[in-house]
Simulated scan of single mutants.
Amino acid sequence: MSESRLGTVGVVVDDPESAPQINAILHQYADIIVGRLGIPYRSRGVSIIALAVDGSMDAISGMTGRLGKVRGVSVKAAISKR
């Protein structure tokens, strides 16, 4: 069994049409998402999603990898070392 890690994931959404696909991915990984904050930044035409995660590196990497493949989405993660 993989060690559980804490971290944050930042998601910037440039294409609002991608929202259903993003939400479907986040729903599939709901078991590792501790908290979620969504901010529509209307003046810039983007949305920002901040996630607090607690899970294996495989699960976190799987989620960020799938999100990063969605059109108009940029993803970065910061994971604790312990």
Score class of each variant (00 low, 15 high):
1 M>I: 07
2 S>T: 05
2 S>M: 12
2 S>G: 11
3 E>P: 01
3 E>A: 08
3 E>K: 10
5 R>M: 14
6 L>S: 12
7 G>K: 04
9 V>C: 04
9 V>A: 04
11 V>G: 05
11 V>S: 11
13 V>Q: 10
13 V>W: 07
15 D>T: 07
15 D>R: 08
17 E>C: 05
18 S>H: 02
18 S>Y: 04
20 P>E: 04
21 Q>H: 07
23 N>R: 03
24 A>W: 00
25 I>P: 08
26 L>M: 06
27 H>L: 03
27 H>T: 11
27 H>G: 02
28 Q>G: 07
30 A>P: 00
31 D>H: 09
32 I>G: 02
33 I>K: 01
33 I>W: 00
33 I>Y: 01
33 I>V: 11
34 V>C: 03
38 G>Q: 05
38 G>E: 02
42 R>H: 09
44 R>V: 00
45 G>N: 06
48 I>W: 04
51 L>W: 03
52 A>D: 11
53 V>D: 13
55 G>M: 08
55 G>H: 05
56 S>W: 02
57 M>F: 03
58 D>M: 07
59 A>N: 11
60 I>R: 10
61 S>C: 04
61 S>L: 10
63 M>R: 08
66 R>L: 15
66 R>I: 13
67 L>M: 06
68 G>F: 02
69 K>M: 15
70 V>M: 14
70 V>G: 13
71 R>C: 12
71 R>T: 11
72 G>V: 06
73 V>Q: 13
73 V>I: 09
75 V>Y: 00
75 V>S: 07
76 K>G: 05
76 K>T: 11
76 K>E: 14
78 A>S: 15
80 S>G: 15
80 S>D: 15
80 S>K: 13
82 R>H: 13
